[in-house]
Computed example of a mutant assay.
Amino acid sequence: MKWTELSDNWCPVARTLSVVGDRWTLLILRDCFLGLSRFEQFIESSGMTRHILAERLKRLVEAGILERRQYSAGPKRYDYVLTEKGQELAPALMTLKDWGKKHMPVRRATNA
């Protein structure tokens, strides 16, 4: 089943995952909550390809989760900022963060 096919599913979790259910999209949202808003910032923070980032940003804007705001006319450049709808994802992201800190702690190499 493709992600887009989940958008008509009876389950609200499945419908939500059709928009935000992949790792790259969640990392973009994480970055937005951390105050990042520009294309190059997202690239640097996440390491995703330009193509994937452009695709995910477009989908988030179309879903009304992010808003695109022009900050430069020549060349045209945009900020991507959370809408009110996007801000409402904060508790879900915080829950994922807290769960990860508890159950997926960073394992640092020891110098032996």
Rank of each mutant, 00 (worst) to 15 (best):
Q70C: 06
L6Y: 08
G47N: 10
D31Y: 10
A14L: 10
E44H: 14
Q41M: 09
L27W: 11
Y80Q: 02
V81T: 12
S72R: 15
R107V: 14
A14G: 01
M48I: 15
E40W: 13
T83G: 00
K101C: 02
D22G: 01
L53S: 04
S37P: 00
W3N: 08
E40R: 15
T110H: 10
M104K: 14
V19H: 02
Y78W: 13
P105E: 11
T49E: 09
K102V: 07
G21A: 03
Q41F: 07
R108N: 06
E67S: 08
F42M: 08
T95A: 14
W24K: 06
S7C: 06
K101G: 03
D98N: 14
G64N: 05
L60T: 03
C32W: 01
L53A: 08
W3S: 06
S37E: 11
K102S: 07
T16D: 02
T16M: 06
V13Q: 07
R59P: 02
S45R: 15
L17F: 07
R108M: 13
V20F: 00
G35H: 11
R50V: 11
A112P: 10
A63W: 06
D79I: 06
N9G: 00
L34A: 11
K97G: 01
P75R: 13
G86E: 00
K2P: 08
R108Y: 13
A63F: 05
D8Q: 14
P12K: 06
K58A: 02
E67H: 04
D22C: 08
S46N: 15
M94R: 14
L26P: 01
G74C: 08
W10Y: 09
L17I: 12
F33H: 06
E67G: 01
T4F: 04
S7T: 14
S18K: 06
N111F: 12
D79C: 08
D31F: 05
S72K: 15
R38T: 08
I65A: 00
M104A: 07
G64M: 04
P75H: 13
R23D: 10
H103N: 14
M48Q: 09
M48C: 14
E62T: 08
Q70Y: 02
N9Q: 07
P105S: 11
Y71P: 03
E44C: 05
G74K: 15
D98C: 05
R56W: 04
R50C: 04
R77L: 14
H51P: 00
A14M: 10
L34C: 02
